[in-house]
Design a protein around this nucleic acid. Structure first.
Lengths: 151, 151
DNA sequence: TAAATATACTACTATTTTAATAGGATATAA
DNA sequence: TTATATCCTATTAAAATAGTAGTATATTTA
């Protein structure tokens, strides 16, 4: 599983993506309330994302956070990675949290290693082709679908 | 990530699968040494797998553990699940560790939920078609491949 | 039948990670 | 100058994970 901070980050950035076209920014408090994320925790998460250049901020009254890149260019895989979420199921096939297996003499001969690599590739394939913009689009489609089925 | 106990379980069961055709059993000590798993920890893991009916054991001198089913029928997904490893990346799309999102009013309208479902399906697809027998076969192939490339 | 060898079982501890909070410093707008 | 935000460091709380200890029980074998 990925940590909550990764999920919170995705939710918060999606909120920012929704106001991107209007060049608007949102305050931590606003996002926290909207997305039901603990305020102080969100603060720490956004601060980190800012230090990594994924968002920018404006201090002072009527300040807030805004996306640096277009929602089309921000991929889920990137968000998960920069908030410390491992995508792989075991450390020896993780790109960002790689750790050698103590027990494997040669990991290139390990069958489990090979299978877990395939799993990682399949996951990353989906997560790195899905952007914040895609997420918003999906939500619109899901909403329309539920509207239709209520008729 | 899945816990170490899941990985240890896969390694241990693979060791048992390798002697399955000879109807042999292996002692905890033997497996622990072979696979470099802490002895007492492995004991706890195998005991749990036994209580879930995945393996059986024989007490006393020259006792040990053995597989109940054919290595062809034991899938990685089943091992991971019965040792407490979540395959999904977030709780709201997990089959065995499901938890409702506090922040989502309607999870069927959540774009992230939908994407994470796809990731889970892709992972489970691979893990539930791969058996212990497949793992052993893969290892043989990897070994032959490395032999050839050394020529 | 005694010694050796294994599993069965319960309880405990230590470590690490994650989630979340506290509180003051700094910047900006109205 | 007051109100509103972000910035930043430090700390705490809770939970999960990994691993250990020790004793009871069963079975083989000499």
């Amino acid at each position: 599983m990925i940590p909550k901070r990764s999920k919170y980050a995705i939710k918060a950035l999606t909120a920012l993506a929704k106001v991107y076209r209007d060049k608007q920014h949102l305050s931590i408090a606003t996002i926290a309330e909207q997305e039901k994320i603990p305020r102080k925790f969100l603060e720490a998460i956004l601060l980190q994302l800012r230090n990594e250049g994924m968002v920018n901020s404006k201090m002072g009254a009527s300040g807030g956070y805004y996306l640096v890149k277009h929602p089309d260019e921000i991929m889920l895989s990137a968000i998960i990675r920069s908030t410390g979420g491992p995508i792989a199921l075991i450390p020896c096939v993780s790109l960002n949290f790689y750790e050698e297996c103590v027990e494997c003499p040669h990991e290139e001969l390990c069958g489990l290693h090979e299978v877990m690599l395939e799993v990682r590739e399949a996951s990353i394939h989906i997560l790195s082709k899905t952007s914040l913009a895609d997420l918003i689009l999906r939500e619109k489609k899901l909403f329309r679908k539920s509207e239709n089925s209520r008729k």
